[in-house]
């Protein structure tokens, strides 16, 4: 998406730097977790006191064993802030439902390659996915003539491209980094909504699953895949899942998924179920966090009442 508001330099100018692969051995990490084991999640609501609701999510960081310059540890750090519900502007049309505005922004230092300040295509795309996921879970007709702003800032994210392996990932599905971001955004927004005391049908969480080919030609499903651990992917899927209703509000798959299974190839059904399992895993954490939050608030209330 061209930046039309500034005078930029010529589009084709210098050649981009290319990192050569290291000569000293393997630069990709091998996945040490079990296929159905998620990375550890740290989720804290209420980090921004001035906002109506907020939350912070961080995933366990996986480090390269080597000390190379281009060895980027993989992690995900997201912060979500909610303002509202606030009244719609006077000249806006009447609406009997809550209007959502979702803003996803990468911090310039979030990825290996610096991102500018203008919202680019990826951010808008991720924002649309998160909006689709959240619109289904908020009970919107409780807030007529109102709007909320959900602002998600990505402080650290995985690149789609694994640096140092030539021009790009071969034999793999691009965009896994973005899928992990979408999944994280859904979970963190859900925690922030709960913190902002907005009525939701359920605690929605995001989950990612990928289909990875093994050496013997079979495929295995990896939950919560990380870009630096998975050099070869067949397909990947991210879902936004509501466990209590057993419903899915967001589905996004990429890659080649053949139609029917002959025992060797993957299928859509099993990929969807794996992603749902990943979401269920994250839900356990979210539920724990929710209970702790509610308990903390109720003890605070008891202390306040006992003072008066």
């Amino acid at each position: 998406m061209a930046d039309k508001r500034r005078i930029n330099g010529p589009a084709s100018g210098t050649a981009i730097p290319i990192f050569t692969p290291s000569k000293s051995g393997a630069h990709t990490l091998q996945r040490t977790r079990k296929p159905n084991q998620l990375r550890k999640i740290y989720l804290q609501p209420g980090v921004v006191p001035t906002a109506s609701g907020s939350a912070y999510l961080e995933l366990e960081s996986l480090c390269h064993p080597s000390s190379l310059l281009n060895a980027v540890p993989s992690s995900l750090k997201l912060s979500c802030v909610i303002h509202g519900p606030k009244p719609l502007p006077r000249n806006a049309n009447f609406s009997s439902n809550l209007q959502l505005t979702i803003n996803v922004k990468f911090a310039p230092f979030a990825t290996r390659q610096r991102r500018g300040y203008i919202r680019d295509v990826t951010e808008r795309d991720i924002g649309t996915h998160v909006e689709t996921a959240l619109c289904g879970v908020i009970v919107r007709d409780r807030w007529p003539k109102s709007a909320i702003d959900i602002i998600i800032t990505i402080l650290e994210a995985e690149d789609d491209v694994q640096w140092g392996s030539g021009t790009q990932q071969q034999n793999t599905v691009g965009g896994l980094g973005n899928m992990n971001v979408v999944s994280g955004c859904i979970t963190v927004a859900s925690a922030a909504l709960m913190d902002a005391k907005i009525d939701c049908l359920d605690l929605i969480t995001g989950g990612v699953a990928a289909v990875v080919p093994k050496d013997d030609g079979k495929f295995v499903h990896h939950l919560d895949p990380s870009v630096i651990e998975e050099p070869f992917l067949n397909s990947a899927c991210v879902v936004g899942y509501m466990p209590a209703r057993d419903e899915v509000t967001l589905v996004w798959t990429r890659g080649n998924i053949p139609s029917y299974s002959d025992g060797q190839t993957c299928r859509f059904d099993s990929l969807l179920d794996s992603a749902v399992n990943a979401a269920k895993g994250a839900h356990v954490i979210l539920r724990q966090v929710a209970t702790e939050l509610a308990q903390a608030e109720s003890t605070k209330l008891i202390i306040d009442e006992s003072k008066t």
């Binding site: 439902n97 689709t132 589905v251 798959t253 890659g255």
Partner: peptide, 14 residues
Amino acid sequence: TLLAVRTIETPARD
């Protein structure tokens, strides 16, 4: 082969 599936926001919510 299935290449992609995406959910789209349904207008029946608003």
